[in-house]
Design a protein around this nucleic acid. Structure first.
Lengths: 243, 243
DNA sequence: GACATTTAAATGTATGACAATTATCGTGCA
DNA sequence: TGCACGATAATTGTCATACATTTAAATGTC
């Protein structure tokens, strides 16, 4: 067994959990002020340092924010989409990079999620979203673009696709999946030929969305997934032969 | 503007960020030991308390783990799927509950993501997954079940569907979406009639997956989404009239 | 009334001490 | 030798205290 279930956690972890529960269960509401560090120390019968360590844990999860000065203190934080994005991306990236997730698995997950957005995006995406896609497609056509920049543009293209669905919850969920894939994608060396083919597929997706044709968008995403998987396999094979 | 960009963060936040960068960028690898708190304090020229607060922030994100005793210390942690699940669920739940996300938006996102899993699950789900679904369906048929328990079983059913896709990255991404919906779902009072209808739709999904019929599963999920949205609208209307 | 000053409350940081934990080393005994 | 057992040292966990810094409110002054 990996985690010893019997060992009790630190005091600061226990206190952090107690406060976290109060927030998650709604016993403390947004912008409500927590007792001061000194008061918490007394309530939990620990030193102020221990309370502070607990509060820093909560701050790291964006559950609270602190303000110095008179009438300052720790307040229950309304977590913003931007903060949630950031945390999700950090977690997802590390999860993928540290757990030897295969390119194939990550790629499959990413495109499955993106296809989930495609029908909604086809129905709702605005001219703005389509313009972003066109700009990224143009960028991807430039031959002097580095592989990293190409991948970055790829992410931006797919972000526009996802945001086109007009559902912030979906955008939030997808942010992690798409961004976390980038380090894996960066391993691929894009030849002029493969770039051309990807750009063509991006154009197919863009056109399908512009025509509000969900089925065509889905099919194009399928093809893009298949091609990306092929590229990934080539890289893995080359790496294996070299070793 | 909400967040003042010019104000510099705490020392403990700066130090946490510096170490976080080192981990994310791969300059520190999994299971590598960080310098001791005393050494870090000297390196960053701050007190040990400040270093400790920084380390607690990282521990809260599962980036490091600490071990007491000789040859103990802080180690770069291999974040597990279970830990990542937990964090994602906490974040997603708070994001939804604190940002007044409409039932409609959350529901749409959830079912869009689930439909993304359906074809994979139809192709790959095992007898185990189907058995879990059947058990939950049986549970959902019990008339003395509380609304909370019914929702809990609903989550378990959909978890089995998602896990059936056999893609851990997908399961991880979906965990947040499905679990975070539960507090919103709990607001719905399930009548005997609505429960019956939901159970019938669950059976349709189960049967479709058993037949490896992706299209039928997709259609059943569409119907379930439409019905769930209807129930949600009823609740909102009732709540609005009462107010 | 407007502006400057003081004050108080809070977090941020530093320091030092001690407790608790745990791998390693050494010692002594059979 | 081999092994048990205790000493040791390194390290995190906790506490207490002091002081610095920040900030809003209260107070005072013109």
């Amino acid at each position: 067994m990996k985690t010893d279930p019997a060992r009790k956690p630190d005091l600061s972890a226990q206190i952090a959990q107690a406060i976290r529960d109060a927030i998650v269960e709604g016993r403390m509401i947004v912008n409500e002020r927590l007792p001061s560090e000194a008061e918490l120390a007394e309530q939990f019968d620990v030193s102020r340092s221990t309370v502070r360590e607990a509060l820093k844990r909560l701050a790291a999860q964006s559950l609270i924010r602190t303000q110095r000065g008179a009438f300052g203190g720790a307040f229950v934080n309304r977590i913003s989409y931007a903060e949630a994005y950031g945390q999700q991306i950090t977690t997802s990236t590390l999860l993928l990079s540290m757990n030897a997730v295969s390119f194939e698995t990550a790629c499959e997950a990413r495109f499955a999620l993106e296809r989930a957005c495609a029908p909604l995006s086809a129905a709702r995406c605005t001219e703005d979203h389509l313009a972003v896609m066109r700009a990224e497609i143009a960028l991807q056509g430039q031959p002097d673009l580095s592989d990293e920049a190409f991948c970055g543009s790829d992410v931006a293209f797919h972000r526009a696709l996802v945001d086109g669905a007009g559902n912030p919850v979906l955008s939030y969920q997808l942010a992690g999946a798409v961004e976390a894939m980038q380090p894996l994608m960066n391993m691929i060396t894009f030849t002029a030929r493969s770039r051309g083919r990807i750009v063509a597929l991006h154009e197919r997706i863009h056109d399908a969305l512009g025509r509000r044709d969900a089925l065509a968008a889905d099919a194009a995403l399928h093809d893009l997934e298949a091609y990306t998987q092929t590229l990934g396999r080539d890289v893995m094979r080359a790496r294996h032969n070299r070793a």
